[in-house]
Amino acid sequence: MSTILECSGLTKKYGSRTALNHVDLKLESGRIIGLLGPNGSGKSTLIKLINSLLSPTEGSLRVNGHEPGLETKKIVSYLPERSYLDENQKVSTYLSYFKDFYEDFDTARALDMLRRLNIDPALRIKTLSKGTQEKVQLILVMSRRAQLYCLDEPIAGVDPAARDYILATIINNYSEDASILISTHLIADVENILDEVVFIRDGQICMQAQVDEIRIKQGQSIDSLFREVFKC
């Protein structure tokens, strides 16, 4: 297994507030990793740094051996916590947009997923419900054959049925040599699909472990361990 992500002394400050504080992290490829922590712990900041939406204040970050930039954008597929879809555009516009810009975008796969959900590509984004818009965005992101998928709170704010669909879509649409980094605080919903967890608190990594290890050695579910670690 090769290293897909490596952070060394990674720090991000917003003015006087430190969002990430000297983070050292190494993630191997071919795994589904949960980036778990309470609200404001630095999960989204780390994912934005991976996607070069923010610049680090200190330290370094490498994705597949490259600093965030043009090369990493070709291999990282990012689902932000908010919608980036222009409401005036059609779903089909985004299909051609992704096809034009990402060499690894699989249009047939995206169309198949849209068909299964009865979403007409000719519809405008504004005519879709919020939940359907989130599904469209997820379909676009998961239809890429990327090496690293960064999913920021993919199941927050959707109903349980939609959560099941989203998780099934994630599981069924990534190749085994790719990695998925899922940021969430809804542990119970995702713990069954995770291989590894990274606990983050106040901008620092407080635990990185294999899910099986936690279950066997500590005899705990991830959810109960999370509650224990982040007890208020």
Partner: peptide, 13 residues
């Protein structure tokens, strides 16, 4: 703005 989450993750300079 919000659409920047897509624009800035496109593989363009």
């Amino acid at each position: 703005a919000q659409q920047g989450y897509l624009t800035n993750t496109l593989p363009v300079t």
